[in-house]
């Protein structure tokens, strides 16, 4: 289990709970700390702040403790906690809101490879309308600097396996509605890049 940090971070931002509540629509105030979410969370072993603690710390405005945690990046959005929570608290949606705030406010990112991956995933979608795995993986490797020998070998092996099975697409499929796609990205992300 990852070691849990001490909360020497005692800075409290009283407006934080309301900001998250408003932005996400998640009713965090209803949580009564039963821990059902954490007990069933398959990714908890890799989190420094357990899902129930994320909810609690958000309720009381411990903004930095939440935004600098690894948890908001390694949640897999498996939807198990929200399915089981007696108060229907949508933790994966809360996690989305929290890492979006972290990215916008440029707080130090505990697991930088995660947002790098999601941006690499969206780049071909923005450009062509569909996923193009070769470009996505290439972008991810470059930006996350996955150049170790081990990474190279894994990628070469997988790439070769996919190639021999006819699963590797060499060119993107460009949809006709690329303009509509660009509009969608413009209207939603605005100046924020993918």
């Amino acid at each position: 289990m990852a070691s849990k940090p001490k909360y020497n971070n005692t800075v409290c931002d009283p407006s934080f709970a309301a900001q998250v509540r408003e932005r996400s629509g998640v009713e965090i105030e209803r949580c009564y700390q039963c821990m059902t979410c954490t007990l069933g969370c398959d990714a908890n072993f890799a989190m420094d702040v357990a899902p129930n603690q994320i909810v609690r710390l958000t309720q009381i405005g411990m903004k930095e403790a939440v935004l600098t945690s690894s948890s908001i990046w390694v949640c897999t959005s498996c939807e198990a906690c929200v399915t089981r929570c007696p108060n229907e608290i949508n933790i994966p949606h809360l996690m989305d809101c929290l890492h979006q705030i972290a990215l916008e406010e440029e707080t130090p990112v505990k697991e930088p490879a995660v947002p790098v991956f999601h941006r690499a995933f969206m780049a071909p979608v923005r450009q062509f309308g569909r996923q193009f795995e070769v470009l996505m993986t290439g972008l991810f490797i470059l930006k996350a600097r996955k150049f170790s020998l081990r990474d190279m070998l894994t990628n070469a092996k997988l790439g070769f396996g996919m190639f021999t099975r006819g699963k590797l697409k060499f060119g993107p499929h460009r949809i006709k509605g690329t303009k509509a796609m660009n509009d969608i990205f413009q209207k939603t992300l605005g100046g924020r890049g993918t």
Binding site: S77, D96, H99, Q100, L103, P115, F117, H118, R119, F121, M122, V125, G129, R130, Q131, I175, K176, G177, A180, M181, I184, F185, K187, T188, L189, R192, T194
Partner: peptide
């Protein structure tokens, strides 16, 4: 006809409206 990528896990990771618009199309 001319369907587009749904954004999978990455759309809603980055922005809720983006994720919904990709699927809404």
């Amino acid at each position: 006809p001319d369907w587009n990528c749904c954004g999978a896990s990455s759309g809603h990771f980055l922005d809720d409206d983006l994720a919904h618009a990709l699927t809404a199309r």
